[in-house]
Design a protein around this nucleic acid. Structure first.
Lengths: 248, 248
DNA sequence: CTATAAAAATGACTCTGGTCAAGGCGTTAG
DNA sequence: CTAACGCCTTGACCAGAGTCATTTTTATAG
């Protein structure tokens, strides 16, 4: 069974591609004010609108970013794996977190002051460039997300999600493991759990893949590509759908 | 009848907030290589995937950014008014435009080499910061857009769109003029023209507003706010929904 | 191994929005 | 004044996804 590498061991702050042009003094000042803490599933790290003083690095685990309306409806912004940072976007303009953050799997976080980040961006031109590059990548993902939600139907969106979990270069039979609960995957894709369940069954029938719990096996990625990528404006493999902080 | 100011006269490159920290030499080198051209409705400026050498400033008119799938489905990324720039996001990573651009109203564009922009970002720290700030604002808009599409229904999305066209500080009766064809508004909101037409009628009945062609009159924005903003995670007035390059 | 709870699947039904087809309205050119 | 075209609206119908209720499966604790 193939499990994503980020589930196997702790991530280190030095791996963040956003920080690839930062020197030792930057990491030293981060380390001096860093706080590491473990959290259980369900823990709320901060709420949309909270005063944003610190940003977070996910050493291990999974974090859900979301927003809620007054009447209780929830929109999932993203679900982040270990190695990612969050809460850093409030550097600009207002000092409030633009979303809420919740722990969805047992997680270890390292929190650090946003001020250090802001200072580094102002002082270190290369850091500013890294940040721009990172945001540009994120922007494309968001654009793609909007496109998918208006053009792809539920089974196709699931297929696309699976493709992004898989090694897209792999030619032969592939085994994909869902990184978190199906209910969470559903919310990540903007659909109800029931819809996800039914749509996954449709996808299975259409592509001949085998679903056993959280593990999905299929002969090759081709059927999945045929099924999902027809309703997408980008070509497979879609290299611009990598995580925002992925190494380059 | 109240018409948005950007329809009344040509915009100037010096108004772009992204360039607010740039000096004369930057504007001079831009001017030296700038090309101004008029276009008719329907003209395609560039296509998704084209080699991106130049970016564009909208002096007057309206531009639709969109992407298409192989089977012909179209997703509108944005519809930009005069004063905005587009095609500049390919500075980072690959040199290809991430969307297609089409003229939807008679338009005057100024095109300039992206290389000048890239150089300015690398050399001028304040410019990099402006760009980051601008992208952060855009990112929030996109996040909101995704949220709206999953939480708000068609009539609510139209209400939200109208609120963004209106002067949100206005207390009394308000008159709102749709800036472009209803069909275009529909595509901007990710719905079919028929759905837009019916949803607008529902919104009219629910809020008591009067619709005459492209002009909408209502007693106060309150009804609209009650109707649309309940299904949104942000408070009214939603200040973070300003255009990406709006003056601060 | 069983008891319990949580997650997932399934069935029945509703509702929103998409699709296809037809008709109305308004603007413009002749 | 009228014809033609584009834009918009309306009607009839359909499909995808949401909702609610129930059952089945799976995971966990005792």
């Amino acid at each position: 069974m193939k499990t994503p590498a980020h589930n196997l061991e702790d991530k280190d702050i030095h791996e963040i591609s956003l920080f690839k042009n930062c020197d030792k003094s930057f990491f030293d000042s981060l380390a001096a004010q860093a706080q590491e803490q473990k959290y259980e599933k369900g823990k709320i790290i901060f709420i949309h609108g909270d005063d944003a003083q610190r940003f977070y690095f996910i050493k291990s685990g999974w974090i859900k970013l979301f927003r809620e309306t007054l009447d209780g409806a929830q929109a999932v912004v993203d679900i982040l794996p270990a190695g990612q940072i969050f809460g850093e976007t409030s550097i600009f303009e207002d000092q409030a977190y633009p979303y809420s953050a919740e722990v969805v799997e047992p997680t270890t976080l390292v929190s650090m002051p946003i001020s250090i980040l802001r200072k580094e961006i102002e002082d270190n031109n290369k850091m500013a460039y890294s940040m721009l590059s990172s945001m540009a990548r994120y922007r494309r993902q968001q654009d793609r997300e909007i496109e998918h939600r208006s053009i792809q139907n539920a089974p196709q969106r699931i297929g696309c999600f699976l493709l992004r979990l898989a090694d897209q270069e792999e030619a032969g039979p592939v085994s994909i493991h869902l990184p978190y609960d199906k209910t969470l995957v559903a919310s990540r894709l903007g659909m109800q759990p029931e819809t996800f369940s039914r749509a996954l069954a449709k996808l299975r029938d259409a592509t001949g893949m085998k679903v056993k719990g959280a593990t999905i096996e299929l002969q090759s990625l081709d059927q999945l590509v045929n099924f999902s990528c027809a309703a997408c404006s980008s070509e497979f493999p879609c290299k611009d759908l990598l995580p925002p902080e992925a190494p380059e």
